[in-house]
Nucleic acid binder design. Structure first.
Lengths: 339, 339
DNA sequence: TCCCTCTACTTACACGGTTCAGTAACGTGA
DNA sequence: TCACGTTACTGAACCGTGTAAGTAGAGGGA
């Protein structure tokens, strides 16, 4: 059982007062350079680390940020997106030795409840808000509480909170233009849940570009992001009379599920059907054929969000941030449509 | 901007001292029932919640538990296992309003560093240790620090810390016996990283049961759990002269990757090759054919671990816990071997 | 010599909750 | 009437840091 040293212990060993030791440790003026070095050396020897509770109490700063994931248990963890985002956030936070509090809840009501509790208990200094919805009530709650937050998602619907997003509309245009250039006239889209802002933005962009390019058909099917619904949507699309020759999936797991359904129905990919997945992951590379994807650096994306939230807590006036546009990585799942 | 009430605010409004209010709020004797009700009502009205830092400082208890994930970025988030485990842990913690601190690091050295920091800063009261290795140095560090912890993994190699595990050896025996009963004589195993305890336990069990059943061949290929290596291992196995007729994969994503490789090489599943995946997920259900799996209730598993860690912090003497044996769910990927 | 400034500290208090040691007020039994 | 116990509180100390305010001593200029 290791003992944990306090400032008082160091002060006693150094023959100084607690105050002087505190100044020395925090790089504040008020102690001589010789004393400072002596104190720092002593503190390192004794393995001193500030007690986070004491510091939080004194500074009225928790030294922690919070992230709540509202996900039904069935959807949980099938998408690599979150773990990558978390990893990116962590990289930045660890460097500033700020902790991350995580909570998994079933819905937005529970999420709001978690925010209120964290706020009232002063557990966190700020929040990462993910899965932004259209007219998202969570934004209102955070604004009302005055709890600093960065919204991962946008543009729009994030109120006065700074947002971080990637340009989904342009990316969607790029994909559809690419498919049209290959000769596809009947393009379908297997979308995420309809309340989600980026689902709506992509949907709008999809309709706009299909209109502009005068495609013969541009159908959208809404899902809950789960592979089951992705498979089901694919079955429906491939069973219809005017079967699409290309399908764009809103996430990687649905694209993998869709590819599997195509096999099952004897539809050749990419000979008879081209497939594009939004967000890359190892999954997309190992299915047969490997999937053409829209790839983002999600880890960097998380890091950007964390940097902005930290800057916000330092009193900086941070604005919105638009990440680099997703890259289109063509693999084996896209080709010219059948003649 | 909502204001946060303190005990002093309540005391003033109630015309009492801070001490009396504290007794009333915590159900301690020393106040009349009438006063207690008045204080509780006032506290609810004012939206009072204990300041976690103040309580932590006073009680020398952080009110938080920690979990560190040591994973290389490429492996990150492809396995549904962790999110389910987290969800199970959270369910239990939320009920006791204990927070969970999460950190993602690249390796065990960084993980140990995180433990030391959390301990020195008094940020957490306990730790969930995951991915137990053979002769795991993290166990030694936690024991040395005297930081309470529950080890998710075992049996064995978890020192004096309580462990929570599922009976992988019996499960492995069950699967191999099932395959042998179908008529398979050449069974292969695509395993996880060799240092991991459950990889070793499963490997030992695999060898034992193959021996006992006098199988013609029982090869094991080690991987890093990634779908790439799963695919590569499958290619090697299917290219050899004495090709196996059944393969057991240590996780779901490698099994999916392996199925894809079989398609790519024109090997029919399950006609020419049977496939079994360890740990179920939606992924296994949506590939073609759906995979026969070993299924565990991972959410419940996480909940059990959390309950035990909380009990430990309450001073109870908790022992080890062996979870229910994984269930074998036969789907379309297993059949009699070719004649 | 006196006064002023600067350095290098010390002292004291605040943060918000818990808890221990009093202490009035009241009832009770002899 | 007094000793005694109980109830329902109050006041103060404590947890470990951070920081504003105060102070001794040195040094310098007139």
């Amino acid at each position: 059982m290791t003992k944990r040293a306090t400032i008082a212990d160091i002060a006693e060993r150094a023959g100084l007062s607690k105050g002087a030791v505190s100044y020395a440790l925090n790089g504040q003026p008020g102690v001589s350079e010789a004393t400072r070095q002596r104190v720092l050396k002593l503190a390192a020897e004794m393995g001193w680390r500030p007690n986070s509770a004491a510091r939080a109490l004194s500074a009225s700063r928790a030294g922690a940020l919070g992230l709540v994931m509202a996900r039904s248990t069935s959807l949980l963890g099938v998408e690599p997106f979150f773990m990558k985002l978390l990893s990116g956030i962590e990289n930045t936070l660890a460097a500033r030795s700020t902790a991350l509090l995580l909570q998994v809840v079933p819905d937005h009501d529970a999420e709001v409840e978690a925010y209120r509790r964290w706020f009232a208990e002063r557990r966190v200094d700020g929040i990462f808000l993910i899965d932004l919805h259209v007219e998202d009530k969570r934004v209102l709650v955070l604004e009302e509480l005055g709890l600093p937050a960065v919204v991962i998602g946008g543009p729009g619907h994030h109120g006065r909170l700074p947002g971080v997003w990637s340009d989904d509309a342009s990316a969607m245009a790029m994909v559809v233009e690419y498919l049209a250039a290959l000769g596809h006239q009947r393009v379908a889209r297997v979308a995420g849940p309809s309340g989600l802002l980026h689902t709506e933005l992509r949907g709008q962009a999809f309709a706009d570009v299909a209109d502009r390019l005068e495609l013969a058909s541009a159908v959208t099917v809404a899902t809950d992001y789960s592979p089951e619904q992705g498979a089901q949507a694919t079955r429906r699309l491939l069973s219809g009379s005017a079967r699409p020759t290309a399908v764009i999936y809103d996430n990687d797991v649905m694209a993998v599920a869709g590819t599997s359904v195509a096999h099952e129905m004897g539809v050749d990919v990419p000979g008879a059907l081209s497939i594009v997945a939004w967000d890359d992951s190892v999954l997309c590379e190992i299915v047969h054929p490997p999937l053409t994807v829209l790839s983002r650096d999600i880890i960097a994306y998380g890091a950007r969000a964390a940097e902005r939230l930290l800057a916000m807590l330092d009193g900086e006036d941070v604005g919105d941030f638009e990440d680099a546009m997703p890259r289109l990585i063509a693999r084996g799942s896209t080709a010219r449509p059948p003649a």
